[in-house]
């Protein structure tokens, strides 16, 4: 399946891209992140500490165990600092 990945803040800076489209057979968001981390050093660097990452699935806050079936957009970012 194909999903759009969006990166924000230092995740975006470490990967060097704001967004990309990827093909994956991963079953969950966490599996996709592990797959990317194995792909290249910059992903490994961005995803080295999973506890420091937050994810949104189709623009709703979600978790790493969220299934990828039918998902179109995944965002990966550090804990939010609004306000």
């Amino acid at each position: 399946m194909t999903v759009d990945l969006l990166y924000f803040a230092w995740v975006r800076e470490r990967i060097g891209l704001p967004r990309e489209r990827v093909d994956t057979d991963a079953a969950t968001v966490g599996e996709l992140i592990t797959e990317l981390a194995a792909r290249e050093e910059r992903y490994a660097l961005a995803f080295s500490d999973l506890s420091a990452l937050r994810v949104a699935v189709d623009q709703e806050l979600s978790s790493l165990d969220a299934p990828l079936t039918g998902v179109r957009e995944i965002a990966v970012f550090p804990p939010m600092t609004g306000g």
């Binding site: 550090p78 939010m80 306000g83």
Partner: peptide
């Protein structure tokens, strides 16, 4: 305010005269 701090998708970066750093989320905000 509590929810906007930790649940609205904003990220702050401090750009200072001596460098730039992303602001870490605070445990007390969570």
């Amino acid at each position: 305010m509590d929810y906007l701090k930790s649940r609205a998708p904003f990220w702050k970066k401090e750009v200072r005269t001596d460098g730039a750093d992303w602001v870490d989320a605070k445990a007390e905000d969570e």
